[in-house]
């Protein structure tokens, strides 16, 4: 589903060159639920934005659904984002001027979907996240957990094959985080591939596979239980 080989991403400013990712290799299979962990600044978000075609990369190759995406033009990238990928951001990123219904509708309109189908999908997605009764509310009238569930509904409504989540529970308390996690697991059971960046070891443990990133490179912790415990402890200290 998502395969990067020897991928690199360099941020150049006038004074410095930052390698956000270097010789980065990952292969996420169709239907997998992968949790990405790693210290702050290690390149997790960079990886996710490149995976989601929000940004281009500097070197190496990236195949999404067996398609080499390095030479796609902007319109083609927009189309793939719209049809294949669902995004869930740490900051929810709902559009404040639109109510819940209209927010969930945004990606469906860009797909050119007809109104009756849009309505059906929106209400279906909102029911799934338990917010059908809040369709006419504005984001500012909802709690953080509710906003994130709207964002999940927005990602779900288009039935994406790949769901990318960057610390989806980072701004939520434990209780709300569990609710979000349960939703993601449910979506996963329905067949979506999920890649989720998280700082929360408890959530990471519930994924099928953990990928650890340090300094822009992948270390597969599942193959080395010692790293796993060491990381869990370190993460616990960071969080404490």
């Amino acid at each position: 589903m998502l395969k990067m080989t020897h991928l690199s991403k360099v941020y150049r400013t006038e004074v410095v060159e930052t390698y956000a990712l270097r010789d980065f290799n990952i292969d996420v299979k169709e239907g997998e639920f992968v949790a990405v962990t790693g210290p702050s600044g290690s390149g997790k978000t960079t990886f996710l934005t490149i995976a989601g075609l929000l940004e281009t990369f500097t070197g190496g190759t990236y195949h999404l659904d067996n398609l080499d995406v390095s030479n796609l033009d902007d319109n083609a990238r927009s189309k793939i984002r719209n049809e294949k990928i669902g995004f869930i951001f740490q900051a929810f990123n709902l559009i404040p001027d639109l109510n819940v219904f209209d927010n969930v509708e945004v990606p469906l309109r860009y797909r050119g979907m007809k109104a009756p189908e849009r309505k059906e999908r929106i209400m279906g997605a909102l029911e799934r996240v338990g917010l059908a009764s809040r369709a006419k509310h504005y984001p500012a009238e909802l709690s953080g957990g509710q906003q994130q569930r709207v964002a999940i509904a927005r990602a779900l409504a288009g039935s994406p094959r790949l769901l990318l989540a960057d610390e989806p529970t980072g701004n939520l308390d434990t209780q709300m985080a569990r609710g979000v996690m349960e939703l993601l697991e449910e979506i996963h059971r329905d067949g979506a591939t999920i890649v989720m960046v998280t700082h929360d070891p408890e959530l990471a443990a519930r994924a099928q596979r953990n990928v650890h990133i340090i300094d822009g490179q992948v270390v597969d912790l599942a193959e080395d239980p010692r790293f796993h415990t060491a990381y869990a402890a370190a993460a616990g200290q960071v969080r404490g």
């Binding site: 929000l54 984002r81 719209n82 990123n93 559009i95 860009y110 927005r154």
Partner: peptide, 13 residues
Amino acid sequence: RQIGVRRALGATH
């Protein structure tokens, strides 16, 4: 930011 979000959700230029 919301323009970026729209772009992320599939809006073209």
